[in-house]
Write a protein that binds this DNA or RNA. Structure first.
Lengths: 147, 147
DNA sequence: GTCATTATGACAATATCTTGTCAATTGTTT
DNA sequence: AAACAATTGACAAGATATTGTCATAATGAC
């Protein structure tokens, strides 16, 4: 059996996706390091900052496509370092709601101040059409595996 | 400062890329597990199988956008388990060339037998145009960070 | 040829992530 | 209400990843 034309390209996207995510994690670590953060913790920070409502650890994990244990570990550390605090969850005794502390909000804003020009700069080399179509396709692929 | 339109979409691609790569790694682990492999080792296997020539560990790492130490570790393990063997490198005394053993080739082919219908099936839900444009864009983004 | 720089393997420390397990909680079915 | 299933936090073990460091090897500048 051989790859169809679409199957071949799909496979190349898979491979490229692994590569890109590694490169972006490095880039994120590099950007976050001066603020005492890492790419992984920045992602948690962002998930909470972009959310309208407080989130449980499990919800964060599902949003990020990661195991809840991995997220729990990061959230616990970030709670100890004062970036995150837990609120009681009226709907669940054990599953507390994670929210950013003022320090956490501040850290996120400092990261944004660096990330925004970084993203704008790199994105300027692409067309909006390519970027949007790529995003839609990536989300479509993610959707295949997160159902 | 705010994200430009392109910067915003670029950032969403970054986030989606992290998520997708995690989901794909899980998928790869699931597929590889019955053959005693993992997603990470499968990727090494594939890098060697798809290469025209034997590769050094450093070359594999650069292809994959990972540190050479991470790849070295996997390659060493795979050498112990008989999937990979080292050839002398006429151009470098210490940097041996990694090649698949017959067992390694066989493992890769067994993985292909599962991966091909997997990829063809999922890819059938997309258009070739979207897939190809996405691949080109992802490679372009990777290129920004691997120079 | 010599010297400085770069690349590489080996080793260690650490961070991140997965799976597995267990008890507590919540939701569902009957 | 009771029984069963699904979700969640906590904990542990292992795999995969990063960075840092050192000695050796290759490359380039002079």
């Amino acid at each position: 059996m051989k790859h169809s034309a679409k199957g071949h390209t799909f496979t190349e996207i898979v491979i490229e996706s692994f590569k890109l995510s590694g490169l972006l994690a490095n880039e994120g670590d590099r950007i976050a390091a001066p603020l005492g953060l890492s790419s992984a913790r920045w992602k948690i920070l962002g998930a909470l900052a972009r959310s309208e409502t407080p989130l449980t650890v499990s919800q964060i994990a599902r949003n990020m496509g990661q195991s809840r244990q991995a997220v729990q570990s990061l959230v616990n550390i970030m709670s100890e370092t004062g970036l995150i605090e837990f609120q009681n969850n009226p709907n669940h005794k054990r599953a507390k709601l994670a929210v950013l502390t003022p320090t956490g909000v501040n850290s996120y804003q400092e990261m944004e101040a660096i990330q925004i020009p970084w993203a704008n700069d790199y994105a300027s080399q692409m067309t909006i059409d390519d970027l949007e179509r790529t995003l839609v396709t990536l989300k479509k692929i993610s959707g295949l595996f997160s159902a």
